[in-house]
Design a protein around this nucleic acid. Sequence first.
DNA 1: CGATCGTTTGAGGTTCCTCAACAAGTGTGG
DNA 2: CCACACTTGTTGAGGAACCTCAAACGATCG
Lengths: 228, 228
Amino acid sequence: MNTLSAEVLCPVERKRTLGRRLPAAMECLAKVARCKTGEPIYCQEDPAHFWYRIVTGAARSCVLLADGRRQIVDFLMPGDLFGVGEGQAHLFSVEAIIAETTVARYPRRRVEVLAESDVEVGRQLRETAFNSIMRLQQRMLLLARTRAIEKVGSFLIEMADRSSPATENTVALPMSRYDIADYLAIAVETVSRALTQLRQRGAIVLDSSRVVRIIDRGALQEGCTVRH
Amino acid sequence: MNTLSAEVLCPVERKRTLGRRLPAAMECLAKVARCKTGEPIYCQEDPAHFWYRIVTGAARSCVLLADGRRQIVDFLMPGDLFGVGEGQAHLFSVEAIIAETTVARYPRRRVEVLAESDVEVGRQLRETAFNSIMRLQQRMLLLARTRAIEKVGSFLIEMADRSSPATENTVALPMSRYDIADYLAIAVETVSRALTQLRQRGAIVLDSSRVVRIIDRGALQEGCTVRH
DNA sequence: CGATCGTTTGAGGTTCCTCAACAAGTGTGG
DNA sequence: CCACACTTGTTGAGGAACCTCAAACGATCG
């Protein structure tokens, strides 16, 4: 009975699905573009004429709030499909966060038409959407954590699970502390302090400020796991 | 350029989509069941053999965390489809929260097969999934709010937008303060205090503890809106 | 070399959580 | 019908966690 609950925390199954390419019929509609660091892939309120997929690199999906805060809605990694099903205009901005980020662009209308004629494409899109829903639900549980140290701990585990299995315990964070703070909805200083505290507890080692080695996975999840 | 951003806050378009019935081909697979208050519709880790839709009443989708807290993942209202695309077992429990809650149950396998043969069903399911994603993203922005009073304010607006348009300014909350607290990831006392404060500011009137009249919508959204 | 950015640490103030008490409403059994 | 327990909602007091402001340091870049 724990097989599924394990999936909640260690989304290996999901990773496989997200990482793989889309059906050939859809891939041949794609055009690939290259983005510099900080360069927007699209902006909030731009007409949503395309769907996108990260090929290499990483990006952040974010929104500016009225109080001046920036909320990062998601970090996008290779294989992630985004900008999908958003009505007439994009609800968020998406910007590359590391150099050499390449993005595949799919014309929305043509994909929608394709989905109605090609059963396989339709099924794949539904599956992708369902996976997004699961990831969003996990993110909601993360944001719902009350303590900053639990948020940061869960974040590190999320990043570890999303990176390649080979380097599961050494995470190279592509984003700054500011990005992490806006993702977790806490202050930058609090992120820094939480990392320091996790280091002092022996849960992690900071090889550099952007490279984290996870020593004690259990300590990171402390109080963050689902009860059985 | 504000058409879309308005949709972010006042999801009228979404409501219409969610409220309407699914295609006839899918509806005829459904069986309707009745649930008492507090009765589970399904439990966390139950095999996910069915999809569900609320016909009348309301329900809460929740998860128990290791620290004993209960996180409510979503409130489900008439028309809402749930339990969809969850792998082999349900990730959350769903319980009715008011008497006379009726739920339609769709056999998952048969719906999936149907979606591959019936283009209309497939399209409708994708649309539903995309709508869920938009709602989840809105919920994420809600949880990302830093102040309790903003969370409660946004919550009231969310509930107002999800109830019938006729009663848009008078919201009958089907859930207790405890449910609201677990939904917003704050303490019950904080929910109560935030409502009192909103009442004192003249933003709302409490006709009874469960019936809220929204007087000043702007005051509820204070600092919660997206910047343009 | 100065400027800027990213990261870390400290000090003080604010918000929220915890514990506690109380009031009102609901159901139950004598 | 009333006494009682229980649930639900509200309010107060004290303490913990986090945010804000400030400063310092290293790295990168022009």
